[in-house]
């Protein structure tokens, strides 16, 4: 599938042109293969959307990028995934550091049962990013501001994060991920549990975050992929069927499987 990856200006030696380069990735759950020989490049300036029918392996592939598959005992990853040219599955890679660099937002908002402040402060605290309370306050405020939540919660930072509305909770989770200053943010269907207004806010937020972080968003909603992303990858049955500029994928798909999916022939 290498020819599909050639839309952006790859320098031949492969150095830091792409934030993430994945080559020939296979993922197995015990003996069952969930991802079959996927190669893809993700860069900083574009939002990348993963689309495809349920169970095609979008989440599985997403989790290989911050090694969250390590937490699933039956999962096994083969192939090569590089972040800034360094193999993240190399034994010398510190998973804890990796996950601080590659943040994740989940399908269902999962704020910790702590105050709003402590939700954001959690990451900076465990990674020692703030020398004192004043610095921590700054990080918390900045993260909430970036996530577009500051004005809504600034007067009640000590309230429980779980008391917020679903959309606010999801933005809290984004703010939480931002707080450790990651380079990549992975979002696994971040809006699937939200109403249209909350969804619109998250999409707007993704626009604002574009360029500051390499963003990958999994979505089953094709309009959403079209709205928020500049690159789209279509997965089907564990394969990466097609990957390219979003507008091309939606207006001029090269593969019949992509076309069938986009026109709603199956899903």
């Amino acid at each position: 599938m290498a020819e599909q990856n050639s839309q952006s200006d790859t320098s031949d030696d492969g150095t830091d042109a792409h934030k993430i380069t994945a080559r020939n990735v296979n993922v197995f759950y015990d003996d069952k293969q969930a991802i079959d020989d996927v190669s893809i490049d993700v860069d900083m300036e574009n939002v990348t959307a993963f689309i495809g029918p349920s169970g095609c392996g979008k989440s599985t592939f997403l989790r290989t990028i911050n090694r969250m598959n390590d937490t699933i005992p039956s999962a096994r990853v083969e192939g090569e995934i590089k972040l800034d040219g360094k193999d993240i599955y190399d034994p010398s890679m510190d998973v804890v550091q990796l996950r601080a660099r590659v943040g994740m937002v989940f399908q269902k908002p999962n704020p910790f049962p702590k105050s709003i402040y402590d939700n954001i402060a959690y990451g900076p605290n465990i990674h020692g990013l703030a020398a004192n309370k004043a610095e921590l306050d700054i990080i918390v405020e900045r993260s909430l501001q970036r996530a577009g939540l500051w004005n809504e919660v600034k007067d009640r930072l000590s309230d429980s994060g779980t008391a917020l509305s679903g959309g606010q909770q999801q933005r809290l989770c984004i703010a939480r991920a931002i707080a450790v200053d990651p380079e990549v943010i992975l979002m696994d269907e971040p809006c699937s549990a939200l109403d249209p207004i909350a969804t619109a806010k998250i999409e707007e937020l993704i626009h604002e975050l574009r360029g500051k972080y390499a963003i990958i968003i999994v979505t089953h909603n094709m309009q959403q992929a079209a709205r928020v992303s500049q690159r789209t990858a279509f997965f089907h049955l564990g394969n990466l069927v097609e990957f390219g500029v979003t507008s091309d994928i939606f207006t001029n798909p090269q593969k019949t499987r992509t076309q069938d999916y986009i026109t709603g022939r199956y899903g």
Binding site: Q97, F106, I126, R176
Partner: peptide, 19 residues
Amino acid sequence: AMRDGSLAMGATKSETIKH
């Protein structure tokens, strides 16, 4: 989801348990 959220922040297992 709580545990995954914490691990995905780069917390270790014992930090996740404790906090």
